[in-house]
């Protein structure tokens, strides 16, 4: 399992692949991994527009199976397009970055519980 994240709260997470960059940089890293055969465990996007404005994102992928899935390649490309469209032309405020980090981590934990995985130290 690979946890692709730019969330500082998950920097030390086991299996973390830390991206020193933006939400979009995380999506691009996820896309690269999907194209190299890693399957998506969680969807690249959140479920609400409010969270689309988060500076942080955590996406979980599986180990590489060597062959990229057409469905997942399309899904991750669409996710990047959607992200660009939803956040186009705006200037970010940083006032609530800590809250966004907290929320992203909380939703990551919920996703892991859905998968039946226990997150150490939660």
């Amino acid at each position: 399992m690979i946890v692709v994240t730019n969330n500082p709260l998950l920097h030390a997470e086991p299996n973390a692949l830390f991206v020193d960059g933006s939400f979009r940089d995380v999506l691009v890293k996820v896309r690269d991994l999907v194209y190299s055969g890693h399957e998506l465990v969680t969807h690249p996007l959140f479920a609400s527009l409010g969270m689309m404005f988060s500076p942080y994102r955590t996406v979980v992928l599986g180990e590489s199976c060597g062959r990229a899935s057409d469905f997942e390649m399309e899904l991750v490309e669409h996710a990047i397009q959607t992200y660009d469209q939803a956040t186009e032309g705006r200037v970010r405020l940083h006032e609530y970055d800590d809250d966004y980090a907290w929320m992203d981590r909380s939703l990551y934990y919920s996703a892991m519980e859905d998968q039946g995985l226990v997150v150490a130290g939660k």
């Binding site: 527009l49 689309m52 404005f53 705006r90 200037v91 970010r92 405020l93 006032e95």
Partner: peptide
């Protein structure tokens, strides 16, 4: 004041 989801302006 920050109702647009954390975007300025």
């Amino acid at each position: 004041e920050t109702v647009a989801g954390g975007w300025a302006g």
